[in-house]
Amino acid sequence: MAAAYTFWFRDSSFVQVRDVEITGADADASAEAELAAAASQMSTLHLDEGALRAAVADDPEVAAVSAEANFPHGVRIAVELRHPAGYIEDSSGAILASDGTVLATGVHRPDDLPLIAAESPELSDRATGAALVVAQTLGGAPDELAGQVQSGRVDPEDGPTVTLAAGLELRFGDASQTELKWRAAVAVLADPDFSGADYLDLSVPDRPVAG
């Protein structure tokens, strides 16, 4: 009897979700609306994160969803969004996130988005191959340099290579330690004595080499 009452109360109007607070989805009004609608069908004693994720499963911008109850009628939903990393000129033009997810297709290249100079053999929901490597590299660009990035490619000898607005090439060597390599580039470019280089070899991040 007690168990039956517990299950009844868990899904009763006494604990029905009425107040939904969503954070992290400011740039995606559609996802916010879908999550609010899904949450309103739940109770604070029976939150179903799987159902929340399913509600936005078709939205490529949403990377992760988590929820926390605020008894008796509130729920806080945290959303992690994917952000554009670069633009690839496939047959219709597509915007990729840093994990290779295709965020939009059939669009023109935004002025502030780097060009991904690579081909992806199966560009459907997610990029693969060189396009994925470049997207991952571009997605790691720190704020200090993000506005200067023009394009990225995978060079047969130098690996992932990013070209800045001034023409300087950042040569990463491979796809490992990307964050450290970006930080090394920031440090070198912030040095007032640095000038006149065509490239910066970041393959060993604690010993960058200009040439």
Rank of each mutant, 00 (worst) to 15 (best):
S43R: 09
L47A: 08
A165K: 04
T105C: 01
P110V: 12
T128C: 03
E169H: 05
G24M: 11
G100Y: 02
Q150N: 14
R53I: 09
A175F: 07
L35W: 05
E144A: 13
A135S: 07
E32S: 03
L145M: 04
P110Q: 07
L35Q: 05
D155T: 11
E21L: 12
A166I: 14
R18W: 01
T23P: 00
A39Y: 01
F194P: 09
D19C: 00
L45E: 08
H73G: 02
S98I: 11
D201Y: 05
P192E: 09
P84R: 08
D19A: 04
P72D: 14
L138Y: 03
G167V: 12
R53K: 08
E144Q: 10
E144I: 07
D174L: 14
L180Q: 07
Q148K: 01
A117G: 08
D28Q: 04
A3I: 15
V188P: 01
A190S: 07
K181P: 00
E61S: 10
N70F: 09
V17Y: 03
D158Q: 14
R18V: 06
L123Y: 01
E34D: 08
V62E: 05
I22E: 07
W182E: 02
F7A: 15
E34T: 05
D125Y: 06
D198G: 08
A33V: 13
D158I: 10
T101N: 14
S195E: 14
K181E: 06
R171G: 02
E61V: 13
P114E: 05
G50E: 15
A64K: 02
T137P: 00
